[in-house]
Design a protein around this nucleic acid. Sequence first.
RNA 1: GCCCCCGUAGCUCAGCGGAUAGAGCACCGGCCUCCGGAGCCGGUGGCGCAGGUUCGAGUCCUGCCGGGGGCACCA
Length: 546
Amino acid sequence: MSTRDLLADSVSNALSTIARRDGLSVEVDPGAVHLERPARREHGDWSTNVALVTAKRAGTNPRALAGALVEQLTADPPLHVTSVEIAGPGFINFRLENGWLIDSLADLLAQGEEGYARPDVGHGETVQVEFISANPTGPIHVGNGWWGSYGDALARVLDRAGYRVSREYYVNDTGGQIRTLGESLLARRRGDDVPEGGYQGEYVNDLAAEFDGPDDVTAAGRWAAEQILDRIKATLASVGIIFDEWYSQASIEESGAVDDTIALLAEKGLVFEQDGATWFRATELGDTRDRVLRKANGDATYLAGDLAYHRDKFLVRGFDRVIDVFGADHHGQVASLMAGVEALGIDPARLEVRLGQMVSLVDGGESVKMGKRAGNAIALDSLVADIGPDATRILSLMSSLDQATTFDLASVREQSADNPVFYVQMASARIGGVGRKAVERGTVRAPLDQVDLTLLSHERELELIRCLEELPEVVAAAAEDRAPTKVTTWVRRLASSFHGFYHDCPILAEDVDPAVAQARLWLVEATRIGLAIGLGLLGVSAPEAM
RNA sequence: GCCCCCGUAGCUCAGCGGAUAGAGCACCGGCCUCCGGAGCCGGUGGCGCAGGUUCGAGUCCUGCCGGGGGCACCA
């Protein structure tokens, strides 16, 4: 049992003992009671606000309740606890002897990279994460890469936190955009200008030179989309983003699922005809206006396909939960999607839509406008070529999805040594260096049960263990909040703790006590495990040398 | 007009309702006969404004001011 759980149990037991004894009615709101590591070391190792949040309803004041709790806890102190004190308005602060940290280190080493930091927040729930889903009408841009890194890292985090995860890319391989792409391609092949509103990029020229099919707009469009999709797959693979499923919109339309979905909505009285089109009465379910499902020309709208698609996700494939990651420029479709999902009899709480705010690019102070049709978007490919896949991923996972970020291409290009990825990977490389140096000096790491970890008592060593000890909770929070960024923050902190330790605590130097060296070698191994887990969740490599 | 996101240090960003708000870059000053100095240590500097809820607000609520993105028979 973790120290946190141990303390939580003790506090809870002490509270009910006091409540019984003093006849207090204690109603504890479990979400409000926190057991946390104080930001300031002089406040102890652990702290709880339980007295502050329960005193009022118990009909007493926080400091009085805290006093009683302290008395109770002092009489029967939890493992490793050396003192319990009241502080400030009614916090209860615990001081522990270092044994609790040594225990957590031993625990980490026993569980290893596979087993450590696997909090079960998902309880085996199945969740589909759909992300990127950029139209295959041109190369994907940096924004797609940003949100893609988020989606992929989120999937990794959820997977580690006990969800059964499937990653999916919805391929818009049908409809007007594909026709426009086909027209652009054929125009280029004839040597004409691309028609108004068509795709202007270089890649259209390249594809036109290759295309030897007939003069059929749809066939040309589909062919081009396939080529482009192959490139998108290769680009994403280069930054470590792999999908379980590439789901074709055309296949949904051809299967008749769109017609079925519209029929289903019609049965519920939510469909009407107007101006030759078929409409969904979305206003009945909270949308701002009604929406067209089938256009007057007979084509299904994007929404109709999307509803059929979501019906497939929930009702056919049976995911417990679906997380759609969209760019903020698709915000407008959320309300109608939610309305449609609810109309189909699916609990809308099972669908989460996360909107990625825009990534604006500047290049040496010059702002760069992104637009696929104009062909001037910064391709993810070119960014990766500039700064590498690891830097691309960690930079995109530094800020939260809600934060519109500004990214200066020039600054990363010119001073890439200042890039945070180097700082973290330096820690990884130093760990590799320790291993190499140990071999060089003929030092062998002894089996763990023959090593005295309690020799780790330097403040740098303890701080490093404190950081490692937090990882399971960081993973849990990242999963619950759908915020893989929390892992990035933690990894950077771990790297910082490790650099400090490395600087002040020699491991293999001549004058280090061999027993201390052994304990430190295991601490280095624990750090390697922590870094491997953390960087693995971010999709960043942990090199043994740089 | 309506909806969503964001205003935190000079810049880019962190910050489960908790105690004295953090990091990187930039700037100033220290540390290499020592396992990787791409590192370590110290300093300068900040929550857009006004109310409210709370024992406690950068965090929650309302309004205002700024910035971004939406509001198609396009996807």
